[in-house]
Design a protein around this nucleic acid. Structure first.
Length: 657
DNA sequence: GTAGGGTTAG
């Protein structure tokens, strides 16, 4: 019995133990299930938080963050990341200081935040945190390196890079992009060649550097070399895109297209396969841009129509293409079709309408656009300036500042042109002061200053700015100064400067020759005028425009070479305009050539049926030589055509008289 | 679910 009892007892106790154990176990399972479900909840909530942050709704994210019952380090880090991405570093730092536990990601985020705020103070704080953090990984080092690189401190970046315990491919890439960012192609090349292994980012970055340096053929070579190695070839599409865009910049559309066609598949097209080396939307956009830049709007449109999925850049590029060829109808068919026009789309329409002289439509779009930005103001102001509504431009410029928008170099450049148009030296000088106070003057701004001063007669001021500009000067600068001299009767100075320009091996443009020919006219240099006209065509390959013909006709006419002027007009490959006939008519009046005057006047009557000027001039000429019948006939014709005498001869250069 | 390097426009 004793043994049995013992056995029974043992059995019972075992059962009991098992029972207790199993109860305990199930309780613990429950507990861990609860814990894991809470963890799942937190995971889901964190995911939701970062989704909200990705859409940029920072306030919404913050209120969710505040309401959350529990948070882990990832929660805090995500919120910090939100502020870091928005450059709200103070708010990020507050959370960082408040959070109960920091992990290495928290530290790295803060370093990244400080490093991407430009300025030495922020960089120093990034370095403080970097030095203070308990443990550093690749990300910490790489973030710090790129922080120095972004701030132009490649010396510090190199020091850090050299002192790293171990480097990965990102460290090398950060160095290469840093050098490129700071214009040090030599060091970038050295590092690219030295690095032990390259990934698609290394190649893309380096290719982009080569493209920016104009070394397109070298870029193509690098791309082929690494493209053929193969294993991660699909990531190279970015490098391809960069080179396509680079070819576009240089006008090498065929090379661009060859490269574009080399990217085999196409996620934008029905035969697209995910994950293959394939064209993406940027490839398409870049190629379309090449065509637009080359003025081949048809090919651009052909590609655009083939795209399955377009983004906002595709639409805007295409719209801009039509704006550039002043086809506002087509630009408008597209603007109305596109899903959600952004500022760029609206601004393109504004510039486009202004460019074709539809200022009222430009204004209408300017008023209607949902949110104006600086470019909108610049577009509308430049539009007013181009349409010679200078008072309107100034009004807008004042309104812009009243609405709290600060003018930039583009605004100021347009307003300087306004001052030139108004011949308002006082205002021009005020704008010049504003330029000195607010922007670092670049070449276009200085060109505008030269033009403004010379138009206002302050030619010495112009020349001072011109002389202070660094050599080699661009052709626009030479044109501005030569034009300034030419239009103010400093013909010899204009021609001297043109000779200097040639000695400086700067290729003149048609604009240069308008000034040069005009200078010859005003200096009484008829042989030189002829010779420059000839040089323009034979030596520089510039097709003469109507302005050049008008200028030479004017020059020849003034010197009594009316027959030669008439022969020149006859030789023109296109129809002469009112400036050409006006110049001839003016010369005929001075030199009393009635027959040619008749030809010129009739041509002008056809071109400008409402203008009284050719009638009046012809009448006076007939009267002067006593051809009274003809004079009376002109007068009758004028009455018959209901033409009233006007005060000014708009088509004749006033310097004739 | 959070951190580091590369592409297209006025």
């Amino acid at each position: 019995m004793g043994r049995l009892n013992v056995a029974a007892l043992a059995f019972r106790s075992m059962a009991l133990r098992r029972c207790i154990f199993s109860t305990f176990r199930s309780a613990s399972t429950l507990k861990s299930k609860a814990a894991s479900s809470k963890a799942t909840d937190l995971y889901t909530l964190n995911k939701k938080l970062s989704d909200i942050l990705r859409t940029g709704k920072l306030n919404e994210a913050k209120s969710m963050f505040d309401k959350m019952q529990q948070r882990n380090t990832v929660t805090w880090n995500s919120m910090i990341n939100g502020y870091v991405k928005r450059r709200e570093i103070t708010k990020a730092r507050k959370l960082f200081d408040e959070m109960p536990e920091r992990d290495i990601v928290s530290w790295n985020l803060m370093i990244s935040g400080y490093a991407s705020c430009l300025g030495y103070k922020f960089l120093e704080e990034a370095k403080n945190l970097f030095d203070q953090m308990p443990r550093r990984d690749f990300v910490s080092w790489n973030t710090m390196i790129s922080g120095y690189a972004k701030n132009g401190r490649m010396d510090e970046a190199v020091r850090l890079f050299e002192s790293m315990p171990e480097r990965n491919v990102v460290s090398w890439n950060a160095m290469i992009t840093g050098f490129l960012h700071n214009g040090d192609m030599l060091s970038a090349t050295e590092y690219f060649e030295r690095m032990p292994e390259r990934d698609s980012t290394s190649v893309s970055a380096f290719v982009s550097g080569l493209v920016q340096n104009g070394q397109l053929d070298e870029a193509a070579r690098v791309l082929t070399e690494y493209g053929s190695r193969g294993n991660r070839r699909k990531d190279l599409v970015q490098a391809y895109n960069t080179l396509i865009a680079g070819y576009g910049q240089e006008g090498r559309v065929d090379d661009a297209r060859r490269l574009f066609d080399q990217i085999p598949f196409n996620c934008n097209h029905r035969d697209g396969r995910n994950g293959e080396f394939e064209k993406n939307v940027v490839s398409w956009n870049s190629m379309i841009m090449c065509y637009v830049k080359a003025g081949d709007i048809f090919s651009a449109r052909e590609l655009f129509d083939q795209m399955n999925e377009r983004d906002i850049i595709s639409w805007n590029t295409m719209i801009n293409g039509y704006v550039q060829i002043s086809d506002m109808e087509e630009a408008l068919n597209l603007f109305n079709m596109m899903p959600k026009p952004d500022n760029m789309s609206w601004n393109s329409m504004i510039s486009g309408f202004a460019q074709v002289g539809r200022l009222e439509l430009a204004c209408d779009y300017f008023e209607r656009m949902p949110q104006k930005n600086l470019v909108s103001w610049n577009s509308i102001i430049a539009g007013y300036e181009k349409n010679k509504d200078y008072k309107g431009a100034i009004k807008l410029f004042i309104q812009m500042q009243a609405e709290g928008e600060k003018p930039d170099r583009h605004t100021l450049s347009a307003v300087l042109s306004v001052c030139a148009g108004l011949v308002d030296l006082h205002l021009g000088m005020q704008i010049h002061q504003l330029v000195s106070k607010t922007v670092i003057p670049d070449v276009p701004i200085k060109n505008s200053l030269i033009t403004m001063y010379s138009r206002c007669g302050a030619i010495i001021e112009s020349r001072i700015i011109f002389d202070e500009m660094k050599s080699p000067k661009v052709v626009v600068t030479w044109n501005a100064m030569i034009g300034g001299y030419a239009s103010h009767g400093f013909a010899m100075e204009a021609l001297e400067l043109f000779e200097l320009m040639k000695r400086n091996k700067v290729q003149p443009t048609y604009i240069t020759f308008i000034s040069v020919l005009s200078a010859c006219t005003h200096a009484g240099l008829v042989d030189e005028g002829r010779a420059y006209f000839k040089d323009m065509v034979s030596e520089y390959g510039i097709e003469p425009r109507v302005e050049h013909y008008a200028s030479l006709v004017d020059n020849l006419g003034r010197h009594g070479k009316l027959e030669e002027a008439m022969d020149l007009i006859k030789s023109m490959p296109f129809d002469p305009d009112k400036a050409v006939w006006g110049a001839l008519l003016g010369a005929c009046r001075v030199h009393n050539n009635v027959e040619l005057a008749q030809v010129a006047a009739e041509a002008l009557m056809r071109l400008e049926p409402e203008s009284s000027a050719p009638y009046v001039l012809l009448y006076n000429m007939y009267a002067d030589v006593g051809l009274w019948d003809a004079a009376v006939e002109v007068r009758e014709m004028m009455e018959r055509n209901n033409i009233r005498k006007q005060a000014a001869y708009s088509w004749i250069d006033s310097s004739h008289y």
